[in-house]
Design a protein around this nucleic acid. Structure first.
Length: 225
DNA sequence: CTCCGGCGAG
DNA sequence: CTCGCTGGAG
């Protein structure tokens, strides 16, 4: 698929997925950061369960979480998996932001590249998490790439099979207008969950069937039967 | 590359 | 039972 065909494909998805839930509305930037860390390598259901538990137990502010007992944080985060790491990192990040003038908001006011590299320097924050926060909490012009989106980009063939994070992100930034990126990001995740699934993609029911030819994932051709 | 990890789909 | 999930660090 070339980039024009990708634009067409996105329009098809928009027709199917009319509305979408603005889950980040009403959340502070810090809460969005915490929620995104919880979501790492975890499905949305388990993410919500853990986030809900955490918010029931604590006021989600750096001042509170920096001093929260690690055990209690872990207990809240368990449904999301990877919970010891996530609890530790959220607590560490809280302490770091506490000690910084202006906290997270000050970082998000900076120019994109500067803000991005400061976020990535936080423990447990990689490109994906940083881009989600920049996009959803600060309205910056990023395009977050999760495993669904990377998989779709490779199957559609708008990047090659061994493309890294930045290549996929750049490809979608070319195709999607700045103001539409949050919506398209969420749409693609939904499409990846409902049709373009990792294990057994439902190509027979896929609305993007042509021009997508179902390019197999670039890696791991030799699975043992 | 491996580990962290509860959880649901197949 | 295995695999993958809105990843990141060592």
């Amino acid at each position: 698929m070339d980039l024009d065909e990708a634009k067409w494909a996105l329009r098809v998805l928009e027709r199917i997925y009319g509305g979408f839930e603005e889950w980040w509305k009403g959340l502070s930037a810090f809460e969005i950061l915490v929620a995104t860390i919880i979501s790492q390598n975890t499905n949305s259901k388990n993410t919500s369960a853990a986030f809900r538990k955490l918010r029931e137990r604590f006021s989600l502010r750096p001042e509170v979480l920096a001093g929260a007992p690690l055990k209690e944080l872990e207990e809240c985060l368990r449904p999301a998996g990877l919970y010891r790491m996530k609890a530790k990192r959220i607590k560490e990040i809280s302490a770091i932001l506490l000690g910084r003038e202006g906290g997270l908001e000050a970082i998000l006011k900076k120019p994109l590249d500067e803000a991005r590299s400061e976020l990535v320097s936080l423990p447990g924050v990689g490109w994906k998490t940083a881009d989600v926060v920049l996009s959803f909490a600060a309205g910056k012009a990023t395009f977050p790439v999760d495993t669904h989106i990377a998989r779709i980009a490779k199957r559609w063939g708008i990047v090659d099979g061994k493309a890294g994070y930045e290549e996929v992100s750049t490809a979608f930034k070319k195709v999607v207008d700045e103001k539409e990126r949050r919506r398209v990001h969420l749409m693609l995740i939904r499409f990846g969950r409902e049709y373009c699934v990792a294990r057994a993609p439902r190509c027979d029911q896929c609305p993007i069937k042509p021009p997508c030819r179902g390019v197999p994932l670039g890696r791991r051709t030799a699975r043992k039967v």
